[in-house]
Design a binder for these strands. Structure first.
Length: 513
RNA sequence: GGCCCGUUCGUCUAUCGGUUAGGACUUCAGAUUUUCAUUCUGGCAAGAGGGGUUCGACUCCCCUACGGGCUACCA
């Protein structure tokens, strides 16, 4: 029988998850759902010094916003609860596995103090050792259960002296494993250090914790960033020494998201510097009070964000680009994940949002616009707002641009495009607008067709080309030099409003000397 | 420095030994819109370099260069 596919996203709650983390979660989710399996959220809060309040809630809210449903995990609960490693420590499972490794001779106690470790590194560096680290050669000159007598070790343990448990990595052994994305990776064990498995505070490190939990939670595929590739061989060793190599999940190391200008992996600083969000949601640092911007607050549709993220390092194999979560799920596979890092392109992100904005119904957009209007104490009939959205949605990338581009549909403009006025406003155009106002006043029906017709007739009567006066008419009535169809706009605003605005412009705009 | 991973248009990518190397973003030009935006059409633009293997290499192998990651009692 096929094993049920189970993937987890296991972030450390040390701050907000940035878009790269969300992508890792997304790929895990897509694969799990593609194969009818489970998506689990686990909190890897083993570093108590770096714990940030609110970070866990943040990640849960981020996933929810993206439409990624958690089957089991923190908050959601499930058969393998608890899903927080700080709570799982109380179960004694990490210690149990560590003890097993010590018993089988694959791990050992180490009593070295931080100072002694620093001295060791300084010594190695001074001796120009190629790879200065706590390893098979160095450990024999350190304070641990390999160099101390059994009595000494027991005495230290009995005296509650602080200790860590380290993995006893063999010297000069070839470790090979198959990564779903990269294929065979071969590493010599001499390049790996004796990783700390259990810290002196009793907490496991990531190296032990994720393995124990992946086994306990029956995880079948472990998806994580490429930054974990160098320590993967050590993880293979742990599985091997635990006798669990056959139950080991398949690893998939994802290529990294890179900075747009090619300086390393994508970071919050890149976003600040280049002006785009790196987080899914706004985040306010509880310590400093600084707020980092998020895609949601920037006006991105979650579907656009997810779509954009999915296409960074993955493609469906054809030229399809616009895909919702269901389509992504039906097409996802690790075979189509690329091996190389992907530079993030903020412009393409904007393009994705534009695509999704246009897919929205006018009704849905009106609901968004109405919230903005309410902030300006404006209420308008829903049908009217729907009609306005229909006109202006082709001109924006984000919903929040609605107000800045379309406020004149609700209030008379107070600011006018001075560049156009400087170029077009003169006695001739003024006379034209005055005549047009009079003609509009007399119109029995005031719709797009009739206002356009009249606009042309009056121009012709005055011997003017429509091109000479059209933009001035737009500025006089909307304040802006460009915009949606002018006569459709007139149709919405109505005769009185338009005539008033033209007259106001004629009396307030100063003629050039 | 050491170790690991990678390398197709400026960017994201398709190609799984034989293609005029395709698409998208960006950009440019034209058309439409009596403006702007949209839309449409078209253009510019790529296999890092050097060796092999092969009838044939972007595709397989090696070296070099470049890029990235890791090198904590952080994940």
């Amino acid at each position: 029988m096929e094993k049920r596919v189970r993937l987890r996203y296991a972030p450390s709650p040390t701050g907000p998850q940035h878009m790269g983390g969300i992508r890792t979660a997304l790929f895990s989710y897509l694969y799990a759902k593609r194969h009818g399996g489970d998506f689990i959220l686990r909190s890897e809060d083993t570093d108590q010094t770096r714990f940030v309040p609110g970070a866990e809630e943040y990640i849960i809210e981020s996933l929810a916003w993206c439409g990624i449903k958690v089957d089991e995990g923190v908050i959601a609960g499930g058969p393998y609860a608890p899903y927080r490693q700080s709570e799982r420590k109380e179960l004694g499972i990490y210690k149990k596995y560590a003890d097993q490794l010590i018993a089988s001779g694959h791990a050992y106690y180490a009593f070295d103090t931080p100072t002694e470790l620093d001295e060791m590194r300084a010594r190695l560096e001074a001796a120009k050792v190629v790879a200065p680290q706590y390893n098979s050669t160095v450990r024999m000159s350190m304070k641990n259960s390999l160099t101390l007598s059994e009595d000494e070790v027991n005495a230290k343990l009995a005296a509650n002296e602080p200790y860590v448990v380290r993995l006893k990595v063999p010297r000069n052994e070839e470790i090979r494993f198959s990564d779903i994305i990269r294929g065979w990776v071969v590493v010599n064990s001499s390049t790996i250090d004796d990783k700390v498995l259990l810290k002196s505070d009793g907490m496991p490190t990531y190296h032990l914790a994720h393995i124990v939990d992946d086994i306990e939670m029956k995880i079948t595929h472990a998806v994580r960033g490429e930054e974990w590739l160098p320590s993967a061989p050590a993880h293979i060793l742990v599985y091997r020494y635990l006798g669990l190599e056959n139950e080991m999940p398949l690893y998939a190391h994802l290529p990294l998201l890179l900075s747009p200008d090619g300086k390393g992996k994508l970071s919050k600083r890149d976003g600040d510097r280049l002006g785009f969000p790196t987080f899914p949601l706004n985040w306010t640092d509880p310590k400093t009070g600084d707020t980092s911007s998020g895609y949601r607050e920037q006006g991105y549709f979650p579907e656009a964000f997810v779509n954009m993220l999915a296409l960074m390092g993955w493609n469906p194999g054809d030229n399809t680009e616009i895909m919702n979560l269901e389509e992504l799920t039906s097409k996802f596979s690790f075979e189509k994940v690329s091996k190389s890092g992907a530079k993030f392109d903020p412009k393409k992100a904007v393009w994705f949002n534009q695509q999704y904005l246009r897919m929205q119904t006018n009704d849905a957009l009106a609901l968004i616009f109405e919230k903005q209007l309410a902030q300006h104490n404006i209420t308008a009939p829903h049908e009217y707002v729907v009609a306005v959205c229909n006109l202006i949605k082709e001109k924006v990338n984000f919903p929040q641009e609605f107000w800045s581009i379309g406020s004149y549909y609700f209030v008379a403009p107070t600011e006018f495009d001075q560049a156009v006025i400087g170029k077009r406003w003169n006695a001739t155009t003024k006379a034209y607008l005055q005549a047009l106002a009079t003609a509009y006043e007399a119109l029995p029906t005031f719709d797009a067709a009739s206002t356009e017709q009249t606009f042309k007739e009056v121009a012709e009567a005055q011997g003017l080309k429509t091109g000479d006066v059209q933009q001035m008419l737009r500025v006089a009535t909307t304040g802006a030099g460009g915009g949606p169809s002018l006569f459709e706009t007139f149709n919405l605003l109505g005769k009185n409003e338009i005539v008033n605005r033209i007259n106001t412009a004629c009396t307030t705009f100063a003629l050039p000397q």
